[in-house]
Design a protein around this nucleic acid. Structure first.
Lengths: 183, 183
DNA sequence: GTACCTTTGAAAACGGATCTCAACCAGCCG
DNA sequence: CGGCTGGTTGAGATCCGTTTTCAAAGGTAC
């Protein structure tokens, strides 16, 4: 089940943000001397209306529904363009796949990944961030970006008792894209 | 250049630890009803004397020097056994390779990865850890393990001015195994 | 020795990311 | 409009790290 921005909660701000992002991408395409094509528009739209952590393959599947002729190479390339334009951002959850999430106007956040059901909780802590910076400073390290991920069992899965024993120390989760957004 | 535990600083504690780890692995092998073989011993030894972040391929290369007949499959399998035994632990630095580091008696730590030279700084912050736990609690999330990584430019590389501009937001480092251990 | 295992290594399969290349098409010019 | 130029596209190939397969080799118990 993919959650859409416009699907069940239409908000003016969403529509506005969508247009803004669209403008940014168009601008980026133009500045790079590239061309505005139907495929790029479709892929961009699909990415923008979807509030999820998507792999290239996920996005390709969604795009494919609208236009089966679009190949995965184009999705891959457009996703790279979206990243360059600052609209998308790569994330990895440890299953050796690259996921993409929104970047523009979406504050930086970190992730908790449930190793039982694969759901992802997004969170942010100002305190942690500033401690990280302090730590970096101590090593005279100038950070450009970082990633904090915690694996474990989400509240929901703790009720299904058997799940608690599931994950061995080195285990990697089978991440299903079913994210829960948190503060 | 691979740094060895016994290479340039022979310490009694290291020798003791080595024996302890060896015991643990033997125990694990026995308990699992497996056999103690020359290949496993060689691979274990090589892993244990090497204080680095190693990929399967790195370790295979080292083992291969001692005994060219050992295949990479066996290294792969033994590394998994070492992980199961609690002697090794997987780490990923974002270059789509799996690195292994010591786990037993090696405190948990996090990583700063220089995107210019690929060196890795290990660090630990009690304060960050406890804030993480607090954060998890807030979401009723029970963490089993976590990973905090910061990418950026290390002190050394900041002197080579050009390096500072190097890394674009989405860029992944080419990680060279040349780690620096920190507090 | 024999029967019954596990272990091993070469090679193949796998899976995600990336590249190649010939056909295609957008934008421009006359 | 038509033709030209150079970026775009998609199928398939390639890459590369990981994991599996399978037949041969090696241990162990009796």
């Amino acid at each position: 089940m993919i959650k859409s921005r416009f699907g069940w909660s239409w908000m003016e701000t969403d529509r506005y943000l969508f247009e803004k992002e669209r403008q940014i991408f168009l601008e980026h395409i133009k500045l790079a001397g590239l061309r505005w094509t139907g495929q790029r528009e479709l892929i961009m739209n699909t990415f923008l209306i979807t509030e999820e952590h998507l792999t290239i393959d996920d996005l390709h599947r969604l795009v494919h529904r609208e236009d089966p002729s679009v190949g995965h190479t184009t999705v891959y390339r457009t996703l790279r363009l979206l990243t360059e334009a600052g609209l998308a951002r790569e994330v990895r959850f440890g299953d050796n796949k690259t996921y993409f999430e929104h970047h523009y106007n979406h504050d930086h956040h970190d992730h908790m990944i449930c190793t039982a059901c694969g759901s992802v909780i997004e969170f942010f802590s100002e305190a942690i961030e500033s401690l990280q910076d302090k730590m970096a400073e101590q090593f005279r390290f100038v950070p450009t970006h970082h990633s904090l991920r915690m694996w474990g069992i989400c509240a929901e899965c703790q009720n299904k008792t058997e799940a608690i024993i599931t994950a061995p120390p080195g285990a990697q989760p089978r991440v299903r894209v079913k994210s829960v957004v948190g503060g």
